[in-house]
């Protein structure tokens, strides 16, 4: 009986003509266009300096060399290794802060009851919409007064105060889906709120903690504005700032070295993407936020 329904014209999708092979052809074409620029950058980074320009749109270098990577790595007075270490430290510390702080706060919103809860929750959601530019200058003044300009503190410390409401929201959504009876059973078992958080909610929330950690890491890694404002000394630079200095110092003279460093700066993100793309995609689909 269902067969007859299947044979009805137009049943299978809203685009009956775009079926099978044609559909894949279209998608592959789009994929190709999407990825081509990135491949072109990788290919460019492997070419000798002389070859990159002059009209070669292809992906195959006539000659493969890692000279551009060597040039780029040591292209500034501080080498890129330092920038990578800096970025890694900042991103890891920021990620830890985000995950701890956001999970504590989300637990309060999703699982505890206290006076004024709805009010604070509404305010928290309100800050999701608030452009950070509004707090930028007084925050800068504050950190400057504290003597933290040209240190990493302004990039790390705010994460320990759950300033990015996105992560709170992400976790509240997840925590709310955990059956409340588990908390109640734990309360009957004599658990304090802390023990419920530690022993029941956190172990059951590994997927969302991982998702938050991944997004947090990537966004801190990619952050350009924060380091641009707060970090002035090159030995403290992040990878993003290093790249930007590289453009300024070398202009267009060594684009392949710039490409090489750009490719390297994307490697950590790409690896995370490779291993955790399911978590990333679910994170976006469930909260529907941001990039």
């Amino acid at each position: 009986m269902t067969d007859t329904v299947h044979d009805m014209p137009g049943r299978r999708s809203a685009y009956p003509r775009l079926t099978g092979g044609l559909r894949h052809a279209v998608l592959i074409a789009i994929s190709f266009v999407m990825v081509y620029p990135i491949l072109w950058m990788v290919s460019g980074s492997l070419r000798p300096a002389s070859e990159l320009f002059g009209g070669d749109a292809g992906l195959i270098p006539s000659q493969v060399t890692v000279q551009a990577y060597r040039d780029g790595w040591f292209g500034l007075q501080v080498n890129f290794g330092r920038f990578f270490v800096n970025s890694l430290i900042i991103s890891v510390l920021a990620t830890v802060g985000n995950v701890i702080a956001a999970s504590l706060v989300a637990f309060a919103f999703a699982r505890l009851r206290f006076y004024g809860q709805k009010f604070w929750f509404a305010l928290m959601l309100g800050t999701l919409m608030l452009p950070y530019h509004v707090t930028l200058i007084p925050q800068y003044v504050l950190f400057r007064e504290l003597g933290w300009v040209n240190t990493w503190w302004p990039l790390i410390l705010p994460k320990y105060f759950a300033v990015d409401a996105f992560f709170i929201f992400l976790m509240v959504q997840f925590f709310r889906a955990i059956p409340r009876e588990l908390d109640e059973a734990a309360r009957m078992d004599g658990c304090s709120a802390w023990r419920i958080y530690r022993k029941i909610i956190l172990p059951l929330s590994m997927p969302v903690l991982a998702t938050a950690a991944i997004f947090s890491f990537i966004w801190t890694w990619e952050d350009f504005f924060g380091p641009l404002i707060y970090i002035s000394e090159m030995s403290q630079y992040t990878v993003q700032l290093g790249l930007r200095s590289f453009i300024d110092s070398s202009g267009t003279s060594s684009w392949n070295a710039l490409f090489a460093m750009s490719v390297l700066s994307l490697v950590p993100i790409f690896l995370i993407f490779l291993f955790f793309q399911r978590l990333l995609i679910e994170g976006i689909a469930t909260t529907g936020m941001k990039r």
Partner: peptide
Amino acid sequence: IAMVFQSYALYPH
């Protein structure tokens, strides 16, 4: 007091 819940509320992990 001990309580048995409708959904059992066993800790799944």
